[in-house]
Design a protein around this nucleic acid. Sequence first.
DNA 1: CAGATATTCTAGAGCAAGTTAGAAATTTTA
DNA 2: TAAAATTTCTAACTTGCTCTAGAATATCTG
Lengths: 214, 214
Amino acid sequence: MTGEDETVTATPDGHKPLSHSPKSAKKRDAILRAATEIINVKGYALATMTEIAAALDLRDAALYYYFPNKQALVFACHQSSLERFERVLSETNQDGGAGFERLERFLRALLVESARNGPLLYFGDRSYLDEDQRDAIAACSEHLTRRLERIIQDGMADGSITPCESSLVVQLLLGMLIWLAKWVPTVEGVTVDRLMAAIGMVGLQGLRNDAPQA
Amino acid sequence: MTGEDETVTATPDGHKPLSHSPKSAKKRDAILRAATEIINVKGYALATMTEIAAALDLRDAALYYYFPNKQALVFACHQSSLERFERVLSETNQDGGAGFERLERFLRALLVESARNGPLLYFGDRSYLDEDQRDAIAACSEHLTRRLERIIQDGMADGSITPCESSLVVQLLLGMLIWLAKWVPTVEGVTVDRLMAAIGMVGLQGLRNDAPQA
DNA sequence: CAGATATTCTAGAGCAAGTTAGAAATTTTA
DNA sequence: TAAAATTTCTAACTTGCTCTAGAATATCTG
């Protein structure tokens, strides 16, 4: 009803993305991935078009063949990350189980997904976007946050999670993930298993209500 | 030996900070506090001199009376935050106790300090600084990280903390704090006690080795 | 291979933000 | 209150980055 049918393959605006060859979409994704990684580390403004392009052996101007401007590029990064987040959340949620198990599965699945397809774009500040874009992302991102809170509340209801303020706990968990996205690329030899072990220690065991310790 | 005596009250370089009236230092700190808050939210580049100045009802040019340039201003923010972090860490460490208790005391004390004197400047990326500045901050920040790791290792040794990879755990805890510095200013009514309760749940109980649950 | 289409490049315009110089305004001191 | 010192402002300069226009190269198709 709000006129948001962005399920079409490409943006049907009056913009630049001229045609849509088969390869074009792949390169577009590659740009998003490179941009996301750089933006996660340096932030929006310091992640220059030149640097993003250089990561793919291109000149800055080439990016404007795929995106009308930097804003749109980064907005697409946000969208892509939210979709990936959503997909992982839905998948791990539909397998059922107690709240604690669903939360644990989700965190692991998100780490695996990120290790495979590159980090998600996590960012609190979006002042560089248009108000429409900001609103769209805020709505989507709050929706996802609520779904996570719901999982924790489910866990409290089914007894698998210790009573707590679900909204705060979700933010703390997100904080760990956000920082990981910035931090992991800078170190070597960190595996999903080791990360998950640490998260299980720091971010999960405290929430567990069943067995005291492993 | 490396020529780093920055313990002097003011930078004795050939720079701008002309004289040093009693009030001057206070305003300098106020600038650092405002800048830290804005930078934490928007990042280095998007935190314009104009916006930082506006937070104190000033024009951008007025900032150059206190700092030679933006780089120096933000470097001072980093220094100030590292000093505050260090002070809190030392204070909570010298009171003794098991590793777990020291860690818990530290986190709470840091939250209290931040609530009182404004957030700390947490940032992974420092590409906007000179190499010297970057190195200085990296050295100091790694030193602090190691001290935190040490606390966790002590806790594992004295039995108060469950065996884990201390370096990863420290990063996860820092991730929570970093995100809090960005996130807390955007919400209302969040108290230190509630935050600490959530952190105790998410970030500490899982590490505890003594009593299973509260 | 030739023509068409898709992709990237070079060169430069325009703009936003950092910075500077010197003039005003404020505060301090005598 | 007057002179000196401190603090802030206005206005303009400079730089780096986004973005555009059009040419050049690569890729695809018959």
